[in-house]
């Protein structure tokens, strides 16, 4: 495993921890999109079907369990926790799941490396992960006050994707036959979705003002 991949995984882990910190400690999920969190839970559930059949490494297994466990517990907190759920911006978080899930499922059935259940599900999870941030970005744009933790959460998620691209470039030049068009293109699309957010994030950081996205 190269440094970019490891840094990417750690950034991803940090994003989840920041979100759990906000939810668990502050007992608030204000500004967090439940739709995006549900999509991530679906992404991990469909991607990690190999959890009990293919052993890669202890690291790999542990990280899969952490991402599965954290994504489902975040969804549980926002939906059912009696204090946390009160802060959920339900009226603002109106993105429809099936607008994203159905096209991704169709695309995975049409474009995949191998037409097997597991491979189609894996491909579906890649496509869905690429667009799963959209409800969150829409909510950020609608929310007047983006608190620090929410801003950092989205920034860390974007950084994780950017580091994965560096990881692929590194692997392409260091490993023989390392070519994965589906992973790369969906990963690139996913990272590009953060471009706008990154721009405003750095602007607010540079000028030392509160993060706010233009309507």
């Amino acid at each position: 495993m190269n440094i970019f991949r490891f840094a990417g995984d750690m950034t991803h882990l940090a994003s989840v921890l920041v979100l759990l910190l906000k939810i668990h400690t502050i007992k608030s999920c204000a500004g967090i999109s439940l739709k995006t969190q549900e999509l991530y839970a679906l992404v991990f559930a469909t991607r990690y079907l190999d959890l009990f059949t293919d052993y890669i490494s202890l690291y790999n297994t542990l990280m899969k369990l952490i991402f599965l466990g954290s994504s489902f517990s975040i969804v549980w907190y926002i939906r059912y926790h009696k204090i946390v759920r009160r802060s959920y911006d339900k009226d603002q978080d109106t993105f429809r799941h099936y607008f994203l899930v159905l096209p991704c499922l169709l695309l995975a059935l049409l474009i995949n490396e191998k037409f097997t259940f597991r491979e189609v599900m894996w491909t579906f999870s890649l496509y869905l992960e690429a667009v799963a941030i959209l409800p969150q970005l829409v909510l950020l744009q609608r929310t007047r006050n983006i608190d620090n933790l929410t801003g950092q959460y989205v920034f860390l998620l974007g950084a994780y994707r950017a580091l994965y691209i560096l990881n692929w470039i590194y692997r392409y030049f260091t490993e023989p036959h390392y070519v994965h068009w589906i992973t790369w293109i969906s990963g690139l699309v996913q990272t590009l979705l953060y471009a706008d957010f990154f721009y405003y994030y750095f602007q607010s950081w540079k000028n030392n003002v509160k993060l706010e996205l233009p309507a």
């Binding site: 995984d9 490494s57 790999n60 894996w122 994965y164 390392y178 994965h180």
Partner: peptide, 10 residues
């Protein structure tokens, strides 16, 4: 082999 190597990422 291509598919297996792809699945070592998270």
């Amino acid at each position: 082999a291509a598919i297996v190597s792809q699945h070592d990422e998270l």
